[in-house]
Design a protein around this nucleic acid. Structure first.
Lengths: 219, 219
DNA sequence: CCTACCGATCGGTAGG
DNA sequence: CCTACCGATCGGTAGG
């Protein structure tokens, strides 16, 4: 991580800055300003898209002045990448936690898939779920370097699905070729970002049930 | 066939303009310049997104000067809407033609679905398929008025699927609730825009087969 | 449809 | 982190 430029390590005396207390990164909220920018950016990027969101929008949403985001992020691009990286890390953590739950490995493959699907919907549509949708729908705005870096995380995420899909294919519950099935299944889930409205009746449970009924044959 | 400009008009035939031939709207290609703009815009909107595409990009791709698109379209927005409308009209025409093919109504519901799925993939991924993907992925940039206008065409398109899905649900080949099934199925197909690469082995046939195997139970 | 141009906006920065 | 600002870009237009 970066060294803190606000703390010049002087020798004997002054430990703290003088004068009236000012709202610095450290005193205000312990460095959470960066996180506030990430949250605001994720929200706006999801709602309006990367290009249609200005750094001024983000600054205002995080209660800052127009130039201040660039104190925390080198560029607008870097902000986008940080949003996506946080999204993928949290999605990965969530799926790994589900998969590593005691007893999970002994569940029937269909139940293992249900766990993955439910967690995926949660990550896309649940509370605080702006980060992954931004990753899914705004990656065109990334630079090749960044895209390549994210691709690793995405591949890791998708690899969590493969053992389950292979097992289902072996047992005849999933008839499509596993590779294409994974793409089609994740597509069906990812597209829900476009139409899901929590105020419209269906719950995430309903979506999960419908997806399971759609994809799997009777065991 | 164009008149030969090398032959100077004589007195008696002096109906035509004098001087060197100039490229006007009418002489050049009969007004196809508008269509050239639409095609160029669809291509660029798909590749780079609406916001990241400049009207100068589009003009250059259509071999015009920077201000010229505004001779054909009132605004960049109007161009986007025209692209989407053309996309929906062609998609609707294509599906209607498939559905109205003689004998189609007597096909088994599963075969009727296959027809719809194949045509949908064709519209998304086949030759000249920039218009519908733009409609799917850039509608956030439309104005509410325009979005509402498009929504009618979209509803019409989706309504073509409902009788087939209802029949499949009735026969037990589709177990998920029909409304959610339609959203999930179209999502699975629409997402293919993100990952399909014709140079990577799978054909549209393969995609159609995989989708059918994924969604339907054994009859 | 082209030429020449305007006004606004935007990402980013210097200096404190 | 704020203030003040710059340079570039962009949608759009007047006039021909």
């Amino acid at each position: 991580m970066k060294p803190d430029p606000a703390q010049p390590a002087t020798e004997s005396t002054a430990k703290r800055p003088r004068g009236r207390p000012r709202k610095t990164v450290d005193e205000r909220d312990g460095g959470n300003r960066r996180q506030a920018l990430l949250t605001a950016a994720a929200h706006l990027f999801r709602r309006k898209g990367f290009d249609a969101t200005t750094t001024r929008d983000i600054a205002a949403a995080a209660d800052m002045q127009s130039g201040s985001p660039f104190y925390h992020f080198k560029s607008k691009d870097a902000l986008l990448y940080a949003v996506m990286e946080e999204g993928m890390h949290s999605a990965l953590a969530r799926q790994r936690a589900a998969v590593q739950q005691p007893g999970h490995a002994r569940l029937a493959p269909a139940e293992q898939l249900r766990t993955l699907v439910a967690a995926h919907f949660e990550v896309l549509l649940g509370p605080g779920s702006d980060f992954v949708p931004v990753m899914l729908y705004e990656s065109r705005s990334l630079q090749p370097r960044q895209r390549k870096s994210l691709a690793k995380l995405i591949a890791e995420y998708e690899s969590l699905w493969m053992p389950v899909l292979n097992a289902l294919h072996a047992s005849g519950q999933l008839r499509a070729p596993v590779g294409l099935a994974r793409l089609l299944i994740l597509g069906a889930l990812n597209w829900s970002v476009q139409w899901f409205d929590p105020k419209k009746g269906a719950s995430l449970q309903d979506l999960t049930d419908a997806a399971m009924a759609l994809f799997l044959k009777e065991s």
